[in-house]
């Protein structure tokens, strides 16, 4: 395997680093003017950052609009250089962008960029998440009755995302949609529920109680524990059942099960 392994090691390194003139790589490649080894390697090394850029661009239209194409391209280059692509699908390349921005890389210090990337990523992932689970009919929840309801459980559909944000990026996105000047970053801690109903993606703010209940659903806890997130007493029980009914209608829930 020595020959093949050495070629792949040297050529890959040159293409990934964008150094097609690297003698370690070009020694493996045939060529003569006007297309010598380095020029031939350059055809490939030029394509790599473009592909990464295009993948990020497609998944982050608001970030593109906020930063402008030139700065977004610089961001894509910096992110690509730092992380590379570790997944077979180019569509997964943006998974770490929010974390990358959270470290405030040079030139990208606006504090809400990380939250915006995180939220856009959640919307994309919800759109393409695997289908799965049997939808829960509201009637089925009601039909459980007080004896069977507490021990029953349900799952969150694979497309459901609970996104914790530290800035108000929804107002920012609305401004960008309306071609208004982007507002200044506004710190605001919130949790948003992102889900898919049919083929469309939706999002709403989740209250602290709703977020707790959704996390308990995600953890596979029984419905009595999910409902306890809303407190005790008849009003809390009514709020819990109302939330569960809405989540069932909206295909947030799936796979209702009884022990």
């Amino acid at each position: 395997m020595r020959g093949l392994a050495a070629i792949q090691r040297d050529v890959f390194r040159a293409l990934q680093r964008g150094t097609p003139g690297d003698p370690q790589a070009s020694r493996h490649v045939r060529g003569a003017r006007p297309l010598g080894p380095a020029a031939r390697l350059r055809i490939y090394s030029d394509q790599y950052p473009l592909r990464l850029h295009d993948a990020l661009h497609e998944d982050h239209p608001y970030l593109v609009k906020l930063l402008g194409h030139r700065r977004f391209s610089a961001l894509a280059r910096a992110y690509g250089r730092k992380l590379g692509s570790k997944h077979y699908s180019l569509g997964a390349f943006g998974a770490g962008l929010s974390l990358f921005l959270a470290r405030r890389p040079r030139g990208f210090t606006r504090p809400d960029l990380s939250d915006l990337a995180c939220f856009e990523w959640a919307l994309t992932q919800s759109f393409i998440a695997p289908d799965g689970g049997k939808p829960v009919a509201v009637e089925a929840l009601g039909a459980l009755g007080p004896e069977r309801f507490p021990a029953a459980s349900a799952r969150l559909a694979p497309a459901v995302q609970l996104v914790t944000l530290r800035h108000d990026v929804v107002s920012l996105m609305e401004a960008l949609d309306a071609d208004r000047p982007p507002p200044r970053p506004r710190p605001e801690r919130s949790v948003r529920l992102v889900w898919r109903n049919g083929m469309e993606v939706f999002h709403v703010p989740a209250s602290a109680k709703e977020a707790r209940a959704l996390r308990r659903l995600r953890a596979g806890r029984p419905l009595w524990e999910v409902c306890a997130s809303f407190g005790s007493g008849s009003r809390a029980a009514q709020a819990a059942f109302s939330a569960l009914s809405m989540w069932a209608r909206e295909q947030v829930l799936c796979d209702l099960q009884e022990p």
């Binding site: 395997m1 890959f12 293409l15 490939y44 394509q47 790599y48």
Partner: peptide, 25 residues
Amino acid sequence: CWGSHRGRYIHDLLPMPYTEEAVAH
């Protein structure tokens, strides 16, 4: 072709060296 190395993907279709070693591999 090949397009990945040590767990990183270049998302391109890189040509193979046309050798007996590569055929067997």
